[in-house]
Design a protein around this nucleic acid. Sequence first.
DNA 1: TTATCCCTTGTGGTTTTCCACGAGGGATTC
DNA 2: GAATCCCTCGTGGAAAACCACAAGGGATAA
Lengths: 222, 222
Amino acid sequence: MFTKIIIAEDIDNENLGIVSSVHAFTNAQVDTAQFCDKTRLKIERALQEDVPYQLLISDLSFTLDYKEHTITSGKQLIEEVKKIQPDIKIIVFSGEDKPTIMKSLFENYKINGYVCKGLYGLSELNKAIQAVYDHKTFTCPVSKSALHQKNVLQLDAYEIQLLTLLVQGYKQEEISQYLIQNNISPNSRRSVEDRIRKLREDFNAKTNVQLIYMVNQLGLIS
Amino acid sequence: MFTKIIIAEDIDNENLGIVSSVHAFTNAQVDTAQFCDKTRLKIERALQEDVPYQLLISDLSFTLDYKEHTITSGKQLIEEVKKIQPDIKIIVFSGEDKPTIMKSLFENYKINGYVCKGLYGLSELNKAIQAVYDHKTFTCPVSKSALHQKNVLQLDAYEIQLLTLLVQGYKQEEISQYLIQNNISPNSRRSVEDRIRKLREDFNAKTNVQLIYMVNQLGLIS
DNA sequence: TTATCCCTTGTGGTTTTCCACGAGGGATTC
DNA sequence: GAATCCCTCGTGGAAAACCACAAGGGATAA
């Protein structure tokens, strides 16, 4: 079993629960950090001292306090950690259940497991630790069902840009202006209109308002 | 200090964290229940056996599993518990930070403390336990600032109805029709338009799209 | 009562969005 | 090269939303 594990979780009562559970299950040295920067630092130090962590269990969203934070999200943290220690195993333990986010974590950052916090999150986490130790990847039932959804509508950068401008109160004409100024194409008034219409069709939305509500609920724009 | 405490929290890792922290702080008998029905039952039994709980620490939102649940939320639980044991002390420990919900809990159910889960939620919870034991009410800094917010934008039932119809893709004319059919007033096309405009002004939104995005982000419509 | 205020509703005109048609241009295929 | 497809983009007209002005009505207070 793993002998040295680090946990990144900011909320103190969750942190406490995870640490005790993981420690009880693995009997490993379980360290913890409340913020991303600190996590990265600890991993870096352990590596320098030649006693590296074997497993990182990380949350995705972190509340930022008054301090300066260079890394502000679990996603960034994972990216940074992979740079300094590519062979570390990573399990994400998060309340987040959006398929797109999970997929991107597996595809872009090669995480080894994903467990959704929930009624029985801790026992799923234990299963994940065991599986990852056995060189397998693991997804808990909740995230598995999310991942296996077909027809997950994905938005490309351009579409997200459009929707983002929309929710900022831009009119179609203003969006067109903005795109022209920022050298993004297509950018004609007419094309903007067309793209938004296509999005409405894709999501089966009758109005832009409904469209925005839907993509927002699905977490496709942040 | 309290000697018998019960904790209602469904998420297992949070539950574990709270229980260990509370036990360490109070050295009391700390029982726990994952669902509301079970919590009520335990409190009832303890009362019958003449060893009642002195303090209930409860979450507000509960994930329901496959079983039948008669009580489904922390608010309901508190209401029921107050009926069977009016003198029990209650501290709400929740992620919920909406002022309206907090206020109604203090006013309608006379809870003794409110602590928001967060970076240092557990230490605030300990302070709350001490304060409540000393017959004081307690609000953590986060909830205190939420409670003291002025100009909290509140939506009444009518406005929520309007916004709900909007996100369902209704046009203004259709909203008017719907309101007339359901005997809700005001319901003229013109008034609908006006109310939506007022909402835009209140939220400082340039378009309906931005308005919907904002109220959605604020959790004012579900 | 009168005056005032606020909300509802109507009217009409402007702005914005929506949509159908079609022209041009790039990529692919035969 | 010709045919085809898809995306961009312009035009013009219809639909929807926006907005200013004002009439009526209910509540309140002097």
